[in-house]
Amino acid sequence: MNAHTPLHPLPVTPAVRLQRVVRQFGDNRVIDGLDLDIAPGEFVALLGASGSGKTTLLRSLAGLDSIEGGRLIVPEARSAVFQEPRLMPWKRVWKNVTLGVRDGDARSRATKALTEVGLAHRLNAFPTTLSGGEAQRVALARSLVREPKLLLLDEPFAALDALTRIRMHQLIIDLWRAHGPAVLLVTHDVEEAILLADRIIVLKEGRIADAIPIGLERPREKGTPTFNAIRRRLLELLGVDSGRQPSEDGQEVRPFRGLALAT
């Protein structure tokens, strides 16, 4: 897909622009002067250990939290999918999807969105009768029906089983191609980030430790030499010592050596 090849350098108007953004709780700066641009239609994954500020950043972008300093520009049309589906248990699936949608024929829009995620047959079901994967797909449909220019995903696949997760990866790529929103995926799964993203941002102590463009063709496969090389580099950045084993392509893995890693 040409429309979604990584866009570097960035075009004139990014979909998201952060300038010296600060978010702090008391004296604790969770996000510490962050600069980041996301191009329209770009798929960015945000990696980081727990406490690195990645979820905090996403919440600020979603408008759930305020910021204490800097500038933050986001599209007006944006939506979020969280780790839990967060569906209203008392509303049938299609009502959940169109909750808060005020214009147009709600029912037909819900049907269209649910068909896209393969759940047209569960239109009238109550959320409690859905499996974890189905519920998460409803949450995706609920996001898409709003035609977002920025789709925020906060570990949306973390609670799913491995097989469902693989299907969801494919689905998210298909939906992204069909609708073309900028995507910010927060994850702690290094492989997931490499499989999906145009660019991976590694967050450490509220700052960007590194930004790695992923030029791999889609669909991507795990375990190729390039994939493994990126994976090792990311694990290093995240401070996971992969044991200095010589890798398949003969290079020795460097252990993590602190923060001086910016490209």
Binding site: A62, G63, L64, S79, A80, F82, E84, R86, L87, M88, L99, G100, R142, R146
Partner: peptide, 16 residues
């Protein structure tokens, strides 16, 4: 509170 938050991200007014 997560449902309230979901409602907020979906752009519901206070009355909704």
């Amino acid at each position: 509170p997560k449902l309230i938050e979901a409602g907020n991200t979906l752009g519901l007014s206070r009355r909704e």
